[in-house]
Design a protein around this nucleic acid. Structure first.
Lengths: 192, 192
DNA sequence: TCGATAAAAATGAATATTCATTCTCTTTTA
DNA sequence: TAAAAGAGAATGAATATTCATTTTTATCGA
C-alpha cells in the first residue's frame, strides 16, 4: 500500500536522466536501458511511472516547461508598467536558463525537433499566456511595436535559447554584463 | 569506368529524401531503408555515396549550410556601408528561409540537437565569416553596438530560424510586411 | 560501327545488433 | 499476509550494414 514515498525520488531521477541523456545523444539515440541505468532503476520500473518512451519524453517536456514558466512568472504582477514587467520576466528567464542549463537546453531541443508530440507541444505553449497578455497590453498602450506575438517572441525571448545552447557547447560564455547587454538588445528590438 | 552520370541525380535524391524525412521524424527515427525508398534506390546504394548514416547526415548538413551561405552572401561587396550590407544579407537570408523552407528547417534542427558531429559543426560555422567581418567593421566604425558575435547573431539572424520553424509548423504565416518588420526589429536590436 | 569486356554502379536479401516492451519472480510495505 | 513496487532476463520487432549477384557503361580492338 505504499504510495509514492521513494517513488517520487525515482521519478525525479528518471526525469533528470532523461534530460541529461537526450541532451547529449538525442531522443532516439537514448535507449530506455541507459535511462534506467543512470537513474539506478530497472528498465521495467520506468513503465511503472510512464506509459512508454514517448509518454516519458512528453511528460518530461511538460514538467520542465512548467518549472520554467513558473520561475519566469514568479511574483509577476499584472499591474506594473509594461516595460518594467517585461524586464523582470526577461531577466528571470535569463536567470533560469543560466542556472538550469540542462533544462534550458532540453527545451531548446524539444522546440526544434519532432521529438514531442503535437498535443504536448500545444499544452506547453499555453504556459506562456502571462507574457502574451503583457505584450497585448504593451501594444494597446503604444509602448511596444505592433508586431505579431511570434515576432515579439522571436526577437526578445528566443535569442536566449540560442545563447544558452552556445554556452552549453562551450563556444561562448555569458556573464552579468552580457545579460544586461542582451536585455538591452531584446528591448530595443521590440520597444516602439 | 563510368563516373557519376546518373550518380549526381541519385546523390541529390538521397539528400532531398534525408532532409524531408529527418524534418518530419528526426534523424534516429528515419531508417536508411526509408531514405532509400524515397530516393528510389536500394538501401545498399546509399553506401556507395556515403560511409554510413552519420556521414550521410553530416554531408547533408554541410551541403545545405553551403547552399545557404552561398545564397546569403551572393554579390556581397565588402566596400558598401555596414548598414546597407547588413540589410542586404539579412534580407537574402530571410529570402532563402522563405523559399527553401525544408532546408531552413533542417538547419534549425541540426543546430539544436546532437545530430551533427562536432567537426562538421565547426566546419559549418566557418561559412559565416563574411557576416562576422561585416560586424567587426560595424563595431570599429561605431555603427553597431559592441556586442559579442554570439549576441549579434542571436538577436539579428537567429530569430529567423525560429520564425521559419513556426511557419513550417503552420502556427504562423510571414508575408512581405512581416519581413520588413522583422528586419527592423533585427536592426534595432544591434544598431548603436 | 560494332561487339566484347572489365570496371563501376546498383541491387535485394541476409546478418547481426540494438532496443522497447513484457513476463515472471522477488522484495518491500502497510 | 496481501498488495504494490521493483528487478532482471526474455522476446520480438526494427534497422544499420554487408554480401553475393546482376546490370550498366565506357572503352577499345577489329
Amino acid at each position: 500500500m505504499a504510495k509514492l514515498q521513494k517513488s517520487l525520488e525515482k521519478r525525479e531521477a528518471l526525469v533528470r536522466a532523461t534530460i541529461h541523456l537526450v541532451n547529449n545523444s538525442g531522443f532516439h539515440a537514448t535507449p530506455m536501458s541507459k535511462i534506467a541505468k543512470m537513474a539506478n532503476v530497472s528498465p521495467a520500473t520506468i513503465y511503472l511511472y510512464f506509459e512508454n518512451k514517448q509518454d516519458l519524453v512528453n511528460k518530461v517536456y511538460l514538467d520542465v516547461k512548467t518549472k520554467f514558466t513558473d520561475y519566469a512568472f514568479q511574483n509577476h504582477n499584472e499591474d506594473i508598467p509594461v516595460a518594467e514587467g517585461f524586464e523582470k520576466i526577461w531577466k528571470r528567464i535569463a536567470d533560469f536558463k543560466l542556472k538550469e542549463v540542462e533544462e534550458a537546453m532540453f527545451l531548446a531541443q524539444c522546440d526544434n525537433t519532432p521529438m514531442i508530440d503535437e498535443p504536448s507541444r500545444q499544452e506547453g505553449l499555453k504556459h506562456l499566456q502571462p507574457l502574451l497578455d503583457l505584450w497585448h497590453k504593451g501594444k494597446q498602450e503604444d509602448i511596444i511595436k505592433p508586431l505579431s506575438d511570434y515576432l515579439l517572441y522571436a526577437y526578445s525571448i528566443n535569442p536566449l535559447s540560442f545563447l544558452m545552447v552556445m554556452q552549453q557547447r562551450g563556444v561562448f560564455k555569458i556573464d552579468q554584463d552580457g545579460i544586461e547587454e542582451a536585455y538591452q538588445a531584446a528591448w530595443d528590438s521590440i520597444k516602439k
